[in-house]
Design a protein around this nucleic acid. Structure first.
Lengths: 116, 116
DNA sequence: ATAGTTGTAATCAAGATGGTTACAACTATA
DNA sequence: TATAGTTGTAACCATCTTGATTACAACTAT
């Protein structure tokens, strides 16, 4: 399918589709050649997780949680807030990511077949 | 401490502090009276989790993941995409929230005492 | 009564996001 | 090879979001 076709179905500008496909290509998930229409998967469906896609289109880059890069070193709370909080926030992010890693594109396709 | 004092330490506008304290008050975590300075906790520190604070200041309201409220019903993928994806995304969100629920303010205060 | 504080609406600037246009580079096909 | 159709990407613009700021009413302790 061409980016124009997908765009008209998704009801969005073709450039947005191309940008997203470019991200997936950069992440090594699909291959898309300039000129001829269509994109082809590079990896097997059971080797592509939701996390792969999630990180490919990186809505989130690096840390999910961010706060106050330069807290006041004179403040007893501010001085230690990152030492206290960062590990817990990282744990929460990891929990989310692990859940996304547990679902593959093959899983979704199976669900889709059942529904159709 | 007054909102002005906190604001100068955090290096932010006092109104921002007041807005955040208002959110925490609305969530029943602290009490803050207009007029006199300072805020007092309403619940015990071991009864306040990171999730309570996270949801009180609601950077995220409702769903963490959002995509395409009105997909094309003519499209075999779009027609079923929410039925296929939503539960997995909800699971990921729950995993993150559960992790935040496992850490209390008392935990953080203990860590802080060790560091100080 | 007064000085100092919180609550909140209103406004503004800055940054982020997505939409759109435009065009070069590329590919398959006749 | 010429051509029609497609992708890649830069550039620009409108819109939304976010936080900063001002202003002032309502409140509290002394």
């Amino acid at each position: 399918m061409t980016s124009d076709f997908i765009a008209s179905s998704v009801n969005v500008n073709p450039v947005v589709i191309r940008r997203t496909l470019s991200s997936l290509k950069a992440a090594g998930i699909i291959d898309v050649k300039a000129g001829c229409g269509g994109a082809t998967p590079v990896k097997e469906a059971d080797d592509i997780t939701l996390y792969d896609i999630y990180s490919a289109v990186d809505c989130v880059e690096g840390d999910l949680f961010n706060f106050h890069e330069n807290p006041n070193p004179e403040c007893p709370v501010g001085k230690n807030i990152h030492a206290v909080l960062d590990s817990h926030l990282a744990d929460a992010q990891t929990a989310l990511e692990n859940e996304l890693k547990s679902v593959t594109l093959a899983d979704l396709m199976n669900q889709l077949n059942i529904l159709m």
